[in-house]
Design a protein around this nucleic acid. Structure first.
Lengths: 202, 202
DNA sequence: CTGCATAAGTTTCTCCTGTAAACATGGAGG
DNA sequence: CCTCCATGTTTACAGGAGAAACTTATGCAG
């Protein structure tokens, strides 16, 4: 009895409702200037109501970012569970999933890596980010064990591939991967170059 | 007679003064919430004065971004003019210059790639970005000519290296290159991995 | 030199945001 | 049944964006 009544004084689960509204707007309106009041408005509550659930605007932003990391992690896991002929192919699938996620949720993705989402002061957010990063690490370690990836320090592979994928994602959502600059299929092309450096040559 | 008088009614070169103030604050206050009024205040003019030189806040932001690309281009050119034993070493120098630039001007760097700096509606900004990107392209083409870099499509090398460097820069200024994740020297490590894929193996 | 058009400032005003404080409501426990 | 408290609402205030109307100096026509 908490859903869709004609606004009983107590909402039922306003916290979650606010988060969903915010995620909705973020998904709908490409680069929206995030506004607590707008979130409250569209959720149908007074502009001060959110403060009962979030100390301030930034706290909601960090929660959204955290959810973003969780969802990104799910996308990665999904992409990797499709079976692929090689670890290399699996890597490509995961990378494309990440970039696809960014392109489908540009606002959220940007938020996840913005300075508003300060991971140093928010343990849950930090943990979510680390956990998602861990998915990449696992893949790399697995690839090393089965001799797909070179046996250099896994942290080097991690830095390179994370930077590469994140860079492609950011450039893609900034609309900077123009054909005149980087050809018509920059993502697979770039990943191939990187993978040639990561994979065993024999 | 345009500098440092005791505020004649007409400033002399307010446009430039505003830009400099903004760049100053951006350089000083790591993640500052950009405010036209603050810029006006610190420049010593009324809050409406900037509107005589910039249609709106975004227009000033785009001009700042443009200057950012010009400066980044200078940093890259400088770094590449130091002579290096190999094109590969030159690439590393340029990459580190770019990441260094980002770390020393995080606010500006973020701005350059933010959605506020919409390159599709600002030809000067777009041109500045393209010109800086051209420096990278030149280096890659030169590397291909002297057989340092593989003869794959130069746009693929460009996409890969640009994404890599930009990704490292963004992660660095977001304070996400934590040792626990990517080791103690992620930048050279990541670049090495990438370069192993870009360079000729023999 | 006089006088005016205009560029470049300033003031004032409206609307919006974040956030705090005081107030209201209704459901849960004594 | 009454009272407490979490969760709403209203009201208030400080700032920011930007428009409009006003002011000042400057350069140019005569």
């Amino acid at each position: 009895m908490s859903e869709t009544k004609d606004r009983p004084y107590h909402h039922g689960d306003l916290r979650r409702a606010l988060i969903n509204t915010a995620l909705d707007i973020l998904a709908t309106d490409q680069n929206w200037a995030f506004t607590l009041r707008e979130v409250a408005r569209r959720t149908g509550v007074s502009h001060a109501a959110p403060y009962k659930h979030f100390r301030d605007r930034e706290m909601l932003l960090r929660e959204l970012a955290r959810i973003g990391f969780v969802r990104l992690g799910e996308s990665l896991t999904d992409a990797m569970s499709l079976d692929q002929p090689s670890t290399r192919a699996q890597f490509v699938a995961a990378a494309q999933a990440c970039i696809g996620f960014a392109c489908q949720n540009p606002g959220l993705y940007r938020l996840m890596f913005s300075s508003d989402a300060d991971k140093t002061i928010d343990p849950p957010l930090h943990d979510a980010a680390m956990k998602t990063f861990g998915i990449l690490l696992d893949l790399l370690e697995r690839g090393q064990r089965n001799r797909s990836f070179r046996l250099v320090a896994v942290s080097a592979l991690a830095a390179a591939s994370w930077a590469q994928v994140h860079g492609l994602a950011m450039l893609a959502i900034s609309n900077q991967l123009l054909e005149e600059k980087v050809g018509s299929a920059p993502v697979p092309a770039a990943l191939d170059v990187l993978l040639d450096g990561m994979c065993c040559t024999n």
